[in-house]
């Protein structure tokens, strides 16, 4: 099978999976919202108005206002940027670390492989959330620290996946012929094998974004997520939690935003996986 038939097979399978298509559309919309934020947010998300505190949804404030009279809709829209940034940067870091370590240990094997995989085992046995909590609290919560810490504590799955792909791919004909032609290891790893090993990485990255969004909200609940007044879904939700009985709108809208985002990424990720190879276990 050549590349193009593989691709068309992928699309045919993907389109058949309606949930995945819906997930993909939602993800696309989220991107659009994040990019167009200043245009679509009706208010300055930080504009305080103590005369309109905890107002229920109305025409002027479709999502209501929070405990400082800020417009929830605008905050949720601005929050989408933060959530996406956390998701993408964290997953980007994890993917880069995972791909490099996985590729090298899969390709070279030997002691490097042993050490790396042992390290993966170790990282996998430490409760990651504890690690994130400890590091962030010691460094100080802030969006960059959160992204970095989530990234460096979630690369292990990618490393294993990439290693497994490399193990099976490195003995394949196209690799052997490239080597016979005198290509450098670097070239073989990054130009020949890696592109063929990327599909499971893509799936795990899409799923990872969903995970990172959830971790941010959990950190916000504990008070060490993205710090107010910067709006993140997690910290809007946390404000809402304390007012849940009198102002449901503060927690419901960011809650739905998180829920839809996580669901969309998961459906999309699963859809991609099933379309590439339903037996992939990620």
């Amino acid at each position: 099978m050549n590349q193009s038939t593989l691709k068309s097979l992928f699309w045919r399978r993907f389109k058949k999976n309606r949930l995945a298509v819906i997930g993909g559309i939602i993800v696309f919309c989220l991107f659009a919202v994040a990019v167009l934020t200043p245009l679509i947010a009706p208010y300055n998300p930080d504009a305080i108005n103590v005369k309109h505190v905890l107002e229920s949804p109305s025409i002027s404030h479709p999502f209501g206002t929070d405990d400082l009279g800020r417009d929830i809709l605008s905050r949720v829209i601005y929050g989408s940027r933060i959530s996406l940034a956390v998701g993408f940067v964290a997953v980007g870091i994890a993917t880069i670390i995972g791909v490099i370590l996985g590729a090298l240990s899969g390709y070279y094997g030997g002691w490097f492989d042993t050490v790396t995989m042992r390290f993966v085992d170790i990282m996998l046995s430490i409760p990651t959330f504890f690690l994130i909590l400890a590091v962030i609290a010691m460094l100080e919560p802030g969006i960059w620290n959160i992204m970095i810490v989530i990234g460096i504590t979630s690369w292990m799955g990618v490393a294993r996946l990439v290693r497994a792909e490399f193990l099976s791919l490195k003995e394949r004909e196209f690799v052997l012929s490239a080597r016979a032609l005198g290509a450098s290891d670097f070239r073989i790893i990054f130009r020949h094998i890696l592109p063929n090993a990327m599909s499971p990485v893509l799936v795990s990255a899409v799923l990872g974004i969903a995970g990172a969004v959830l971790v941010e909200s959990a950190l916000s609940f504990l008070g060490i997520g993205v710090q107010p007044p910067t709006a993140s879904w997690g910290n809007i939700l946390t404000i809402g939690k304390d007012n849940i009985e009198i102002a449901w709108w503060i927690s419901v809208f960011p809650g739905i935003a998180i829920f839809i985002t996580v669901l969309a990424y998961n459906l999309l990720g699963e859809g991609i996986r099933d379309s590439i190879d339903p037996r992939l276990k990620i």
């Binding site: 058949k16 959990a218 998180i258 996580v262």
Partner: peptide, 29 residues
């Protein structure tokens, strides 16, 4: 890919995707 499959998929992901502390409060109420 049956309807049953889709429904269970969505239901189990609801559990995964709802921030737990928020759901916890709702159930406590």
């Amino acid at each position: 890919y049956s309807l049953y499959d889709k429904i269970t998929t969505v239901v189990v992901f609801i559990g995964f995707a709802i921030p737990t502390f928020w759901l916890a409060l709702l159930l406590m109420i």
